[in-house]
């Protein structure tokens, strides 16, 4: 009797504990990542919301100042200059990246020999550190001895002093960024190879030329990838720091003062941590809005295949 009553209970217990054991194991496995998220992302983000309302200076106690930091920023000419520089940079550099890399990828996506070599060559500069690359370009763009101006002098043009000339400094930074355009090649090549060849064959039978094929097959088929890269890279471009920090220091005459550089200066040169966290928050909101707008507008111009293959 007793054994009859305990047996189902035991089985039930065992069943429960198996599920529970799995849940506990799962919790243990993901615990470090969750803790890391709480400690290094969520906690700093929320406390900084508070700090952005104070005059925090690292030493001493923060005093509550309300929205004063935000008001200071909005009436600060340098703040708006940094917004302007970052916007120009992002709006110039991201389309250039995407167009150049896509053009390269389409060229490389032909069934020709030696394309692997080209892929390696174009990808290589993207691997190198921002600091080393900046040092190299400081040297290449040197007004007197730089290779760029030497080359220009050989064809009879007197080049400007790129990084010291307010009219050319930001342009130079944008051009230097194009050196790492190869970063996108694997993404494009992978996506290009995913386009069914029947589409091109059909177009060829219909007598389409290469531009028609790009315009009406490649671009629509790639639009989800283009969209993803556009959004991610605009976000990425708002973080411009190393290049301007190294190459121009934000000068000349604030012509290359990027948002991140100004944020850095506020935090670490002027020790205005409260103001800097306010800048972080404004950036956060801007990026969030940008992302929302991008995703809301995506159905208007992104072509998704009705059924994506799902495992």
């Amino acid at each position: 009797m007793a054994s009859v009553t305990t047996r189902p209970r035991k089985r039930n217990l065992f069943h429960l504990s198996l599920q529970r054991r799995e849940a506990i194991a799962c919790a243990c496995f993901i615990a470090p990542a969750v803790l890391g998220f709480l400690a290094f992302s969520l906690f700093p983000l929320t406390t900084s919301a508070f700090l952005s309302l104070t005059d925090y200076r690292l030493a001493g106690r923060p005093h509550f100042v309300g929205l004063a930091n935000y008001a200071t920023l909005l009436s600060d000419n340098l703040f708006w200059q940094s917004v302007r520089v970052t916007s120009i940079y992002a709006l110039a550099v991201v389309p250039l990246w995407l167009v150049n890399s896509l053009a390269l990828a389409i060229l490389m996506n032909q069934n020709l020999k030696g394309m692997h070599l080209f892929r390696t060559i174009y990808y290589l500069p993207a691997m190198l550190s921002g600091v080393a690359v900046s040092m190299l370009w400081i040297w290449l763009l040197n007004g007197r001895y730089g290779l760029v101006n030497i080359a220009l002098r050989m064809i009879g043009i007197q080049g400007p002093n790129w990084l010291r000339d307010p009219r050319w400094a930001l342009f130079s930074i944008i051009m230097v960024s194009q050196w790492s355009v190869g970063w996108y090649l694997p993404i494009w090549l992978g996506a290009l190879q995913g386009i069914p060849t029947e589409l091109y064959e059909a177009a060829e039978i219909d007598g389409s030329n290469w531009w028609d094929k790009i315009r009406h097959i490649t671009l629509p088929m790639l639009s989800p990838v283009i969209f993803y890269n556009l959004v991610m890279n605009i976000i990425w471009a708002t973080q411009l720091f190393t290049e301007v920090f190294m190459m121009t220091g934000g000068g000349p005459r604030f012509a290359t003062l990027s948002y991140m550089l100004y944020l850095y200066q506020n935090a670490f040169s002027y020790n205005k941590m409260g103001l800097a966290t306010a800048m972080s928050w404004l950036l956060f909101v801007a990026v969030l809005l940008l992302t929302i707008v991008a995703f809301k507008s995506s159905p208007m111009w992104v072509y998704y295949e009705a059924e994506r293959r799902r495992p």
């Binding site: 993901i30 990542a33 969750v34 998220f37 400690a39 290094f40 992302s41 906690f43 700093p44 983000l45 406390t47 900084s48 700090l51 925090y56 690292l58 976000i235 990425w236 708002t238 973080q239 720091f241 948002y259 991140m260 944020l263 935090a267 941590m273 800097a276 966290t277 800048m279 972080s280 928050w281 950036l283 956060f284 990026v287 992302t291």
Partner: peptide
Amino acid sequence: IFLILLSTLMLPGAVLVIPQFVLFQ
């Protein structure tokens, strides 16, 4: 939980730089 973790990918590192610095300070 996975989705929340994943959403931090969209967060530019720059947003967290100063808050994290304050934490480590």
